[in-house]
Computed example of a mutant assay.
Amino acid sequence: MNPTTRLAAVLGWPIGHSRSPQIMNAAFAALGIDAVLVAIGVPPDGLAAAVAGLRAQGALGASVTIPHKLSVVALCDEVSEAARMIGAVNCLHIIGERLIGHNTDEGGFIDGLHAAGFVSRAPRAVLLGAGGAARAVAYALRAGTVDVIARRPDEVTWTRARPWSDEQLRAAFGLADLVVDCTSLGLGGADEIAVTDALPLDALPREAWVATLVYHRATRLLERALDLGRPTLDGRAMLVHQAARAFGIWTGQAAPIEIMTKSLDDDLRAG
């Protein structure tokens, strides 16, 4: 860094797992932009102070991750339509004295999906889970039909959810062009194998895709889908493409997707 270097940050708690610095700094370097993104661990009660500090420094902005995507909305002077509809912000852009909140998760998901070869612009999609990630993915897929299946459907307030039962899953899967796991199953909990193996993936049409938002490990869901000959997509695509959208917001330039993807893959291989 030097006195002219522009600062950006990724804010979360904890933050050690974040791959954003590697991805974004590779993009800055590739385009010769004098900027750096740093990871800052921010506990919930320190979010307002951290954002105020970035504003005072005239930073480019910040990526925002768990657990701050909802609470940071109240700190923004303005939010994009996507952020308003989803109810969450994952990208902050500082323009002068104004703080603009964006949600690039939804655009990143659809960009990554289409870049991987998924062609439908109005798919029949089934989302497993109804948390914040599902809400962003549902908004991304709003041009089509979205069925949300949840363990506790009566507690879902942002959409009408179906109960997680074999009957409902099989009926929804039978009509699906795309299934997206938005739950934490793929993180490798004790119930991953049992719950995933109970999913009726055999009911999916042959052309249906299966996706997960997990990017750091192979998941049982994608392993099963591949065994059944279904196209699959893991969470690396969404991670890179949401970062690419943030890069464009901050710099006004097209992001070097291939370089960002290689940076992520290299970092994941390094452990």
Score class of each variant (00 low, 15 high):
residue 119 V to P: 00
residue 119 V to A: 15
residue 120 S to R: 10
residue 120 S to M: 06
residue 120 S to L: 14
residue 120 S to H: 04
residue 120 S to F: 00
residue 121 R to C: 07
residue 121 R to N: 13
residue 122 A to Y: 09
residue 122 A to M: 08
residue 122 A to C: 12
residue 123 P to W: 00
residue 123 P to K: 05
residue 123 P to L: 11
residue 124 R to N: 13
residue 124 R to C: 12
residue 124 R to H: 14
residue 125 A to P: 02
residue 125 A to D: 09
residue 126 V to H: 05
residue 126 V to N: 05
residue 126 V to G: 06
residue 126 V to Q: 02
residue 127 L to E: 14
residue 127 L to H: 09
residue 127 L to A: 12
residue 127 L to N: 08
residue 127 L to Y: 10
residue 128 L to R: 02
residue 128 L to A: 12
residue 129 G to P: 04
residue 129 G to F: 10
residue 129 G to D: 08
residue 129 G to R: 07
residue 129 G to E: 07
residue 129 G to M: 12
residue 130 A to V: 06
residue 130 A to P: 02
residue 130 A to L: 13
residue 131 G to F: 05
residue 131 G to Y: 02
residue 131 G to E: 03
residue 131 G to L: 13
residue 132 G to S: 12
residue 132 G to C: 11
residue 133 A to E: 02
residue 133 A to Y: 02
residue 134 A to C: 06
residue 134 A to W: 03
residue 134 A to H: 02
residue 134 A to K: 02
residue 135 R to D: 08
residue 135 R to G: 07
residue 136 A to Q: 04
residue 136 A to V: 05
residue 136 A to T: 10
residue 137 V to H: 00
residue 137 V to R: 00
residue 137 V to D: 00
residue 137 V to M: 00
residue 138 A to C: 12
residue 138 A to G: 15
residue 138 A to Q: 14
residue 138 A to I: 12
residue 139 Y to S: 07
residue 139 Y to D: 04
residue 139 Y to P: 02
residue 139 Y to R: 12
residue 139 Y to M: 11
residue 139 Y to V: 08
residue 140 A to S: 11
residue 140 A to V: 04
residue 140 A to Y: 00
residue 140 A to K: 03
residue 141 L to R: 01
residue 142 R to L: 12
residue 142 R to T: 07
residue 142 R to M: 11
residue 143 A to D: 15
residue 143 A to E: 15
residue 145 T to C: 09
residue 145 T to Y: 02
residue 146 V to P: 03
residue 146 V to G: 08
residue 146 V to I: 13
residue 146 V to Y: 05
residue 147 D to F: 02
residue 148 V to D: 08
residue 148 V to R: 05
residue 148 V to F: 15
residue 148 V to E: 09
residue 149 I to Y: 11
residue 149 I to S: 09
residue 150 A to G: 10
residue 150 A to H: 05
residue 150 A to K: 07
residue 151 R to P: 09
